[in-house]
């Protein structure tokens, strides 16, 4: 079993991002289903929040990349 622990850390960070962005997406879908005319606002806020969460995950990934 090769590789380093840093790669494991990267994978864990992506799990967190996946869960977070998945939750954003699902709630956004529900909100659009409830109120289809607000789709523009909901989409913009969804993308913004996803970018923030992805930022945290990508910081972890790049740090892990630098370690190993």
């Amino acid at each position: 079993m090769g590789g380093s622990v840093a790669a494991l850390g990267m994978g864990l960070a992506v799990i967190g991002a996946g869960i977070g962005i998945g939750m954003i997406g699902s709630r956004a879908m529900e909100a659009i289903a409830r109120q289809p005319e607000a789709v523009g606002d909901i989409r913009a806020n969804m993308i913004l929040t996803a970018a923030l969460i992805e930022g945290a995950a990508l910081i972890a990934i790049v740090m892990a990349f630098l370690v190993a």
């Binding site: 923030l52 992805e54 930022g55 945290a56 990508l58 910081i59 990934i61 790049v62």
Partner: peptide, 13 residues
């Protein structure tokens, strides 16, 4: 600091 790292990490990735 997070502003800096977020932009750096996204574009570099």
């Amino acid at each position: 600091l997070t502003l800096m790292l977020r932009l750096f990490a996204n574009i570099t990735a």
